[in-house]
Simulated assay, not measured.
Amino acid sequence: MKKLLFLIVLALPVCGFAQKKGKGGPKVFDVLIGTYTSPDANGSRGIYVYRFYAERGELAYLSEIETSNPSYLAITQDYKYVYAVNENNPDGSGGVTAFKFDKATGKLEQINTQKSVGSPAYVSVDKAQKNIFIANYGGGNLQVFPIGKDGSLGASTQTIQDSGTGPDKLRQQQPHVHSTVLSPDDKYLLASDLGTDKINVFRYRASKTPPLSPATPAFTSTAGGSGPRHSDFSPNGKFMYNVQEMTATITAFSYDDGALKELQTVKMMPDDFKGINGAADIHVSPDGLFLYATNRGTANEIVIYAIDQESGKLTYVDRTKTDGDNPRNFVIDPTGNFILIGTRARVNVFRIDKKTGRLIQNHNRSVVMESAVCLKMIPVE
C-alpha cells in the first residue's frame, strides 16, 4: 500500500543519488510523513519515510515506524532526532515521542515517550535543542519538555493553561491551543489558540526553568470566531502570517522583537463561496515571494498569494484543487521547486512556477498514503 511507487524510481540507485549535490545545496531530501492511525484511517501505522528527488519531483519509499497518531512532527537542527505528538483522546493517553533518525538509512528508532496534559496537535523544537513545545488542542494548554543529550525527553518542566472562550458556541467553549511556533531568533514562542481567538506570545529563555514567561503585550487577538491555527514567518523575519481555521482567513502581521502589528486580513475563499471552511496550514516560499495556505472542508484546495516585499501585504494569485480531500499540512522543498501536500488518500506533488507562484500538479508523482497529516524534510548529504 505504502510502496506503490513507480518502477523507474525504485530502479534508481538510491545511495548514488543521496550523494549528489548541485548549486544551492542538496537536491535530495528525506520526507517524514506523520499520519492518523485510528481505525478509520484505513491502515496507517505511524511515521513513514520517503526519499524525495527535488530535481524530478519523485518519491521513493524508505521505511516506516509504528506509533499512535503522530499527527505533527518536529526535527532538531542537526537532523538527528524527531519528535512526534501522539494525538490521542484527552483521557491521559496523549503524549509526545522521541525518535533517533539515521540519515544513512532513513530509519527511525524510538527513544522514549512522555505523557501530555491533553490531546496534542503540534510540536516544535528550539535551535539549541534544549526543549520541545507541544500544543494540547484538547486541554487548551501548551507544555515544555527538556531534551536530554541522547535526544530523549524529560518530564515536562512547564504547563501553561490558557483561559477564555470565543463567540462560536460549538467550537469555542474553551481554549484550544493549536500551534507553538518559535520566532526566527528563538527569543519568543507564539501560540495560536483557536478557542479564544488569540495568539499568545511568550519570552523564551532556554537557560531558565521554567523557560517561558508572558511577553509584553502577552497576546494579540484575531477576529472573533476566526479560530487562529498555524503561523509562519517571512525569511527576513519582518512579517508573520497566521491562518484562521474557522473563517478561512489569513492575517499578515509586522513582527519586531515579539511584538505583532496587524497589517491586513484576507479571505481565502471568493465572496460567493457557500461551502464549509477548514483552513489548515500556511507556509512562505523559501525566496519569500509567495505564501501558500490550505483549506479543507468542501473547498479542498491550496490558495496562493504574492507577498509585497516592502509592506508584507498579500495579493491573491491563484487557487488549486488538491487530488484528494482534507489537505492539511504541506511542505515546500528547500529548492523552492515543489510543494508536497498531504490529503486523506495521498501525498500530492506540485511543481512551483517560481516566477508566478502558481502550481502544476504532477499526478504521476503522487503517492498513495492514507491520512497523511504532517510532512517534514531533511536534506540528504
Rank of each mutant, 00 (worst) to 15 (best):
F17P: 11
Q19H: 13
K20V: 10
K23P: 15
K23V: 15
K23S: 15
G24V: 10
G25I: 08
D30F: 09
D30V: 03
L32I: 09
G34F: 00
T37V: 03
S38R: 14
S38N: 12
P39F: 03
S44Y: 07
S44T: 14
I47M: 00
I47F: 02
Y48M: 01
E55G: 15
A60H: 12
L62A: 14
L62S: 13
S63Q: 12
T67F: 08
N69S: 07
P70A: 10
P70C: 09
L73V: 10
L73R: 05
A74H: 01
A74S: 08
I75K: 00
I75D: 01
Q77R: 13
D78V: 00
Y79W: 11
N86I: 02
N88I: 01
P90V: 08
D91W: 05
D91L: 08
G92Y: 09
G92A: 04
S93I: 11
S93G: 08
G95Y: 12
V96F: 12
V96A: 13
K100I: 01
F101P: 08
K103G: 13
A104C: 11
A104G: 13
T105M: 07
G106V: 06
G106E: 04
G106A: 05
G106F: 02
I111L: 13
K115H: 08
K115S: 06
G118V: 03
A121G: 03
S124L: 00
S124D: 01
D126F: 10
I132A: 00
G140M: 01
L142E: 00
F145G: 03
P146K: 05
S152V: 11
G154A: 02
S156D: 04
